[in-house]
Nucleic acid binder design. Structure first.
Length: 278
DNA sequence: CCTGAAACCTGTCTGC
DNA sequence: TGCAGACAGGTTTCAG
């Protein structure tokens, strides 16, 4: 499920309370449980992992790219939801261990923070130096530093096609398959264009499109598709993703689907020409 | 450096 | 109803 807007929705909910329950800030931890060992990344950290938590207190929740950062001084619990991860705060009365629960923290009041993940792709880290995990991440696309000038330089230093670059977390942190397709459509750029072929104007449109799509996604609490993530409604506002064969909302041309970087890629052949317009 | 394929996993949906 | 196969919002690793 999770791209930047969905992860941001989780973070806000855990921090301020919301769809996953009440805020976890300033809650003291009584115990921790791990139900699927491979969920814990960094096998060397496994020793004493669960025993570290009792008595510690959650002090902050933040986001970096698609990572959730839960500050439990003096360490940080990092969570990446990958494809099917889910986080929720459950009441003390809800003691059942879910079929897909992989990790949980039980607070002293009995409530729990539960990480469930049917496909087992999600990962958590407990570390005193989060930068060791997050260090290779690229720019935050909603930060001030994400400008057309910055992106133009990055794209023109690359030999890759544009969608591959957008999906690369080392360049921009937080974009995934849906929001990349939506942004490229909004900017009128074919996903298979060479990154270095984009003009100054096209890069400016792309920066604007990426930020608008992400902000819209956050505003709708992210997108919920199928059985995975619940609570968001941005899926009702997709203009290109998942609309293969349907008419483009701009020109009516049938939307096409191809594969780029092993991901389904949707585009309008009319609004997103393969070659630059003269 | 770049691309493509495979691997990690399970649940859901489609078609016969 | 059953079953095989395709497919899914992500990332890492390896071969070429």
């Amino acid at each position: 499920m999770p791209e930047l807007p969905e992860v941001e929705t989780f973070v806000r909910s855990l921090k301020y309370g919301g769809m996953t329950g009440n805020s976890i800030i300033n809650r003291q931890i009584a115990s921790a449980d791990l139900f699927w060992n491979r969920t814990l990344a960094g096998s060397d950290a496994a020793e004493g992992f669960l025993e570290w938590f009792p008595g510690k207190t959650v002090r902050d929740v933040a986001r970096r790219g698609k990572f959730i950062l839960i500050s439990v001084p003096p360490k940080t619990l990092l969570i990446h939801l990958r494809m099917s991860g889910d986080l929720k705060v459950t009441e003390a009365s809800d003691a059942e261990i879910g079929k897909h629960d992989r990790f949980r923290l039980t607070f002293t009041d009995g409530d729990r923070l539960v990480f469930s993940d049917p496909r087992k792709f999600g990962r958590i880290w407990l570390t005193a130096s989060p930068e060791a995990v997050l260090g290779s991440l690229g720019i935050e696309p909603l930060d001030d530093g994400f400008t057309p000038e910055w992106l133009y330089d990055k794209l023109h230093a690359s030999n890759r096609i544009i969608k591959s670059v957008l999906l690369d977390q080392r360049v921009i942190a937080g974009l995934g398959n849906i929001y990349s397709d939506e942004a490229l459509f909004s900017a009128g750029i074919h996903p298979a264009r060479a990154a270095r072929s984009l003009s100054t104007e096209e890069v400016a449109r792309l920066v604007q499109a990426i930020q608008t799509v992400l902000r819209d996604g956050i505003q709708y609490n992210g997108a919920s598709i199928d059985w995975v993530y619940r609570g968001g409604s941005f899926q009702h506002h997709f203009k290109i993703y998942g609309r293969t064969g349907e008419p483009c909302l701009i020109c009516g041309t049938k939307i096409e689907k191809t594969t780029i970087s092993q991901r389904d890629t949707h585009f309008c052949p009319c609004c997103q020409p393969r070659m630059e317009k003269n």
